[in-house]
Design a protein around this nucleic acid. Structure first.
Lengths: 120, 120
DNA sequence: ACGCGGATTCACAGGTTGTTCACAGGAAGA
DNA sequence: TCTTCCTGTGAACAACCTGTGAATCCGCGT
């Protein structure tokens, strides 16, 4: 108890499933090919899914060192995650930007796509 | 599940069969000529088949002593196992590398054997 | 002591990922 | 609209990780 990552920790968000302890994330059962950093960032976001997380919080959680202003690492990895998530499930948006605040993980159908009953 | 190795433990993964308790592993019934370490590592991987296993977990499971950073023994034995497995069943890949995470045992047909660049 | 097979360690090459930078594009407030 | 700040993005380079052949070490039987 207490520690953030148990070996059996499983976070499910719609089609997305993240298993930090097993170094695995998947969409509809299809394994995503993520690097260490990408998985760590996705895990950090997943553990805080649904709420806006500041760059500083994300940075200290993943990089384990003090956040410096103008640090762009988080942005770069958000970009890489988005590319892989988009490729895995076209038409869906996973990571939302909150201008001036940070990012929020929350899988949702892209506005451009027409919704159907089963998608929701 | 109690102790990790029962005398009658049998792990079957497609063409591959491992019997840790009898110090035997075989492919399509043909016995592999493995050394003790090779068999131990294969057994450790087989017991965790399908999931990514870190070097540290493999090392402590097989060598039974604390893992030191930069330890390369696991890599060397993975290499030797690969050579013997490849020789036993050409065209198949058994041990997959997950860069930065570890290894995963999961027998699968080599991509090159059933697809070509133009197929995709 | 010697030879042998296996275990362990070493060193280097090559490949992958992590980090940083620079600039483009966009959002919010005056 | 203008200005400023924030975010998106491609690319360059550094740092790290893995593959691999081979040297060295070790235990055992002769």
């Amino acid at each position: 108890m207490g520690l953030a990552s148990h070996a059996d920790e499983i976070i499910t968000l719609g089609h997305l499933e993240v298993r930090p302890g097993e170094f695995v994330a998947s969409v509809d059962g299809r394994r995503l090919e993520l690097t260490v950093r990408e998985l760590q960032l996705l895990s950090a976001l997943a553990r805080r899914s649904g709420r806006i997380v500041s760059r500083e919080e994300l940075y200290t959680a993943v990089w384990q060192r003090p956040y410096r202003a103008h640090e762009r690492s988080v942005d770069v990895y958000v970009k890489r995650l988005r590319r892989k998530l988009e490729a895995a499930l076209p038409g869906w948006v996973f990571i939302h930007t909150h201008y001036g605040f940070g990012y929020r993980l929350s899988p949702s159908l892209s506005q451009l796509f027409h919704t159907t009953a089963t998608d929701r």
